[in-house]
Amino acid sequence: MASQSPQYKLPLPARIGLAAEFYRYCKEHELRFQRCTGCGAWRHLPRPMCGECGSFDYQWARSSGRGTVYSWITVVQPLLPAFNDAVPYSVVLVDMEEGVRMVAMLQDTAPEALRIGMPVEVVFEDAAAEIALPRFKKSG
């Protein structure tokens, strides 16, 4: 069981199956995605098999951590008590340079600044002793 840092109140990932591998790298503040060793395709979410070529072989390849905003929401009404102090917060879809897209909370960036195509970069938030979560902030 994670020893959650007292300041951190938000839900932690369940880390089931291959997700645990993804988060093992996050703990080292490394953003890595699966890359098929058969055809070279990047993928996220983590999956056992490549949907492009059918290969079961992959490596965890390092991402540049840079991308652009594809879409977002800004949550105003917290639906769980854990988020009471977090609102308003934005959750962005980020087109990564590697071609995958990921979901992440926006950090250190005003929701009003959000635009489609806005450059963002990954930052890591240490949530518990062995868990760090990728977040994104406006680049530059």
Binding site: P13, R15, A19, V75, L133
Partner: peptide
Amino acid sequence: ATIADFYMPQGAFVPAHFYGW
């Protein structure tokens, strides 16, 4: 599993969030 591992920890966990994207 997708929500539990990749959406919920980022603050998205109900249809109003997902369809909002």
